[in-house]
């Protein structure tokens, strides 16, 4: 009887599911509000403020910043260029990472652990260090250019231009791409591939008809991640572009720190945010189409 009594009214003290959810979500909501939403709203407002000479921000509201984005061919070119370069980098990263991810997915035991550590280890070094590494390798005095020259060819310029930025960023983003691909490879069951083989599919057709479709979620996730990281990356284009490569992130830096035109920097930042939104939209549409 006493047991029954203890269990009789447990619900009176327990919090309801709704209030529990609020309590659990509160910390992250607070952090997000203070660290993300308020600054972004601030930026949004600033993009409608007037830029005063000498770095001041006027109180008056104006559409001038947004108008200059649309009317000034330089900024339009910057946007198109940034998106184009980021898409190219994403594609290169995908092509380089996919075979590695597939191999990693199929390996097992210690070998897999070893390879995973190998893939992740670049993330343990800062992007600055890796960028300088690439500069050492690809600059005019570096081994690659020297070797090409020694073979008697006209040495190409591999550093302090777009080529350098693309090489550097692709390598830096590969670990992210590989991890995202692996996360999306869950549906890839070796038995399913074998089923395709026994039904008469050559290795190539097995890849095209079974492996590729089943890994599309991973591909979409990896591409979203790398596109977003690439379009917002700053250090690598700044260091490896040699001042000749103009991308959104470097321009925001220049406007904010060099020119001290904060409202224009804010406007460009909002534009990047809009591109993120579009990328996210495209991603969810792709996911829906896959399923």
């Amino acid at each position: 009887m006493s047991v029954a009594a203890t269990f009789a009214s447990p619900s009176s003290k327990a919090p309801s599911t709704a209030s529990l959810a609020v309590m659990l979500l509160l910390p992250i909501a607070l952090v997000n509000a203070v660290g993300f939403i308020i600054p972004v709203l601030n930026l949004a407002r600033m993009s409608f403020n007037e830029a005063l000479p000498g770095g001041g921000i006027g109180e008056a509201l104006t559409l001038a910043n947004w108008q200059s984005l649309v009317s000034d061919g330089f900024y339009l070119g910057l946007v198109v260029n940034s998106i184009g370069v980021s898409l190219l980098i994403t594609l290169i990263t995908l092509v380089l990472s996919y075979p590695i991810a597939l191999y990693l997915h199929r390996s097992s035991g210690r070998w897999r652990t070893f390879l995973t550590v190998l893939v992740i280890s670049p993330l343990l070094t800062s992007a600055v260090v890796r960028t300088y590494g690439w500069i050492a390798i690809l600059s005019d005095q570096g081994p690659v250019v020297q070797t090409i020259a020694a073979l008697g060819f006209t040495p190409p310029r591999l550093m302090f231009n777009l080529t350098g930025v693309i090489v550097g960023l692709s390598e830096i983003l590969m670990p992210y791409m590989i991890l995202a691909l692996l996360a999306g490879f869950g549906r890839l069951d070796p038995r399913v591939e074998e089923a395709a083989r026994t039904l008469g599919a050559t290795p190539f057709r097995t890849f095209a008809r079974v492996i590729l479709p089943l890994t599309l979620p991973g591909i979409a996730l990896g591409c979203l991640l790398c596109f977003v990281l690439s379009i917002s990356s700053f250090i690598t284009p700044k260091l490896m572009g040699g001042g000749r490569v103009f991308l959104l992130a470097t321009e925001i830096y220049d406007q904010a720190i060099v020119t001290l035109n904060w409202p224009l920097a804010a406007t460009l930042s909002m534009l990047v945010l809009i591109i993120f939104g579009a990328a996210l939209g495209a991603y969810s549409r792709v996911l829906r189409a896959i399923d």
């Binding site: 549906r187 069951d189 038995r191 399913v192 074998e194 479709p213 089943l214 896959i290």
Partner: peptide, 11 residues
Amino acid sequence: LVFQSYALFPH
């Protein structure tokens, strides 16, 4: 071949 786990193509 019919696999123990059926191995149908999920997509």
